[in-house]
Design a protein around this nucleic acid. Structure first.
Lengths: 194, 194
DNA sequence: GTTATTTCTTGACTTAGGTCAAGAGTGCTT
DNA sequence: AAGCACTCTTGACCTAAGTCAAGAAATAAC
């Protein structure tokens, strides 16, 4: 967990320069939570209370559409996690956030973050840049989903994030890439032959 | 244009409370730009210099994919506009922003906005909330695009934003909704009969 | 107001990807 | 280590939506 805190500090200071006091205040807001395999961090209808930073384990974000699960993303390692739209708007989540493997995550509550914003202006800047970073990712994904075929999206994932391909069960990846599990399997077969 | 400035002020103060001095500093950064029909505000490869607030006219944001134009959004009236990802990251745009009709827009340059951020902390908060607002819109759209059929997306646009349906040429709307112009036409026909 | 250009519609045909169903691996569990 | 439950693969078939092409309707330009 000390390593995780270091990684967290790196990520923050990548965006803003904190004084030791500011960092201490920030660090002290995070608490460690543990989840079992298959356990839910947030269910549909619940309001997300935390922003997470993954210490260990893998999580997936998905929603239900006519009984089908559609994945929107995955988190692991030293990345942020959470149902972020529910978190920032403090409205009920339309998504499920589930631990795929046993997980430990650092968690920052909404009220603590509001407190940081109110106390140290530097965190407003961090929040702006964090939202911006998040936004750029979504814009990129939107473009990919609107312009690429299923096979092209698979190839992109394979080249840009081979780690995800390796860590995440295929049935989840398929829906993340906007295709059925069968199509996912066929795409892989087609590519392995050529 | 005075009305536009009032609308701009309303939008800002919807998110943060400004002192008269802060508002004056903010207001003075915006300049009025005019564009003819079909004129480009930004082309692919250019870096977006401004965040815009539409005074009048209609604009569309699109990109080219194998020679096909795919629309990502439209702006009109008193909404914000711009190639926002290029603007915030100050990297070359992958998108075109074009005036569909003759347009007048208030424009805030990147350097002026940076100056505001540096001078008045309140604008960091505004920037955070602005990015957040933007992000929530993209997350919603991503969900819609991944879970709805072409017809369902059309119905959603019709009910949530009839104004867009009325103002924007169908061929642009079709690509915005992720379908061909022909499918768009057929969906409308099908719905008009039932 | 009359051309000239776009935009929109419609029909015929194609295709990427989905669905259903049945087997083959894989790996938890006791 | 045997059994059970997932996950992945494969085949057969289906369907939503795309493409191509040709008119009709609407706008823009002169």
């Amino acid at each position: 967990m000390d390593i995780a805190l270091e990684k967290l500090q790196q990520q923050i200071e990548n965006m803003v320069q904190l004084t030791p006091q500011e960092w201490a205040a920030f660090r002290d807001c995070w608490k460690l939570l543990s989840f079992k395999r298959q356990e839910y961090l947030v269910r549909e209808g619940q309001t997300e209370r935390y922003l997470y930073f993954v210490v260990e384990g893998i999580q997936r974000l998905y929603f239900l559409n006519d009984g089908n699960e559609i994945c929107l993303g995955f988190s692991f390692d030293h990345s942020f996690s959470g149902v972020y739209d529910s978190f920032v708007s403090q409205t009920p989540s339309q998504y499920y956030l589930q631990a795929i493997t046993p997980s430990k995550l650092l968690a920052l509550s909404y009220t603590d973050l509001e407190q940081l914003y109110a106390t140290y202006p530097i965190f407003e800047r961090w929040g702006r840049l964090f939202n911006q970073y998040f936004l750029l990712g979504r814009v990129k994904r939107e473009r990919d989903m609107m312009s690429m075929t299923a096979e092209e999206r698979y190839v992109r994932l394979m080249t840009e994030s081979p780690r995800t391909l390796q860590l995440i069960p295929h049935k989840y990846l398929a829906s993340y890439l906007g295709m059925s599990a069968e199509t996912f399997s066929r795409v892989r077969k087609r590519l392995s032959k050529s």
